[in-house]
Simulated assay, not measured.
Amino acid sequence: MDSIIKKLTIFILLLLFTSCSVFENLFMNNTATFIENFNNTVQFQKNWSNNSWKSPALYQLENDHLKISTRPNSNDRVKIRSKQKFTTGSYTWRIFVPKFKLHKQVSIGAFLYHNQKEEFEFDFEIGSGQKIDREKINLKNDEAIVFCVSQFSPSNSNHFPVKMNAYSDFKMELIDVDGCYFVKWFINNKLVKELQTEVKSNIKFKVHCSLENLFFMGDIPTSIENFVLFDGFRYENN
């Protein structure tokens, strides 16, 4: 009799644990709306984690913004990522793009990344850019270059202008088309790029905000401290 009761107790506990895990998974990964205004330290620590690569965590909440910095003469790659995972829906970053020195190797990142069994990534990469890339789209001296990128499945990149020393909205829409993501990139509510990918629409992404001294985003290593201000992020499962 005792053996039956023990087995029944174990079964009930396992059932409860499984049910809680399923519930938590549904809650965490199918959020209808997620809004981050970067004005509450407790919420920020609850929702985001450091993901800097071989770099100090040079970020902080300051005046209702997330401020990320990189050191001069360094290969800093300072990043945060969401603790939650997301799939289809719209993702919008509001960013103050500073006045970068022309052709310096520094880049703002607003991107989605998945790196479990396979690796997938959709990006906005924003910086001064290489001289050759700036000339391709006739950038003015007060404009930064924006790369809208699918890193894998397929690898695809296009670039566009955005004003420096100004706030801009960068939005991606991930849409399920026949079981794969169809991705749209918007800059200040203007559709600039569309791409049908081979990435399955059940793949879950973490959201990233970053500032990185990347060699391919300029011709000259940066010799000054750089910064970016993220004013907010919004996800909607629409």
Rank of each mutant, 00 (worst) to 15 (best):
F96W: 09
I80Y: 04
C148V: 07
S90P: 04
L102N: 03
S150G: 11
S82W: 04
F170E: 05
F152L: 06
W93R: 11
E118D: 14
F86G: 06
I108V: 09
H159P: 00
V149S: 12
K163G: 00
D133L: 13
K99H: 04
G109H: 07
A166Q: 15
F86Y: 15
Y113S: 03
N141Y: 11
R94F: 05
R94E: 14
A144F: 01
T88D: 06
T88F: 04
G89R: 09
F124N: 02
Q151S: 12
S82H: 09
K171P: 02
L139S: 05
S90H: 10
F86L: 12
D142E: 12
V78H: 05
N138S: 14
Y167H: 08
M172K: 09
S128T: 00
R94A: 12
G127C: 10
F170T: 03
E119K: 14
K117Y: 07
D76I: 07
Y167V: 12
K101G: 03
G129W: 02
H114R: 06
T92A: 13
G129R: 01
K85H: 12
A110H: 06
S107N: 03
E119Y: 10
Y167A: 12
F152D: 11
S82G: 06
T87K: 15
S157P: 00
F100K: 01
P154L: 10
V106R: 07
F152N: 13
F152A: 07
A166R: 11
G89D: 11
I145V: 10
N115M: 08
S168V: 02
V78K: 05
N165I: 01
P98C: 02
H159D: 02
D142W: 10
N115P: 03
I126Y: 04
H103F: 13
I108A: 02
Q84W: 14
Y91A: 07
S90T: 15
I137W: 05
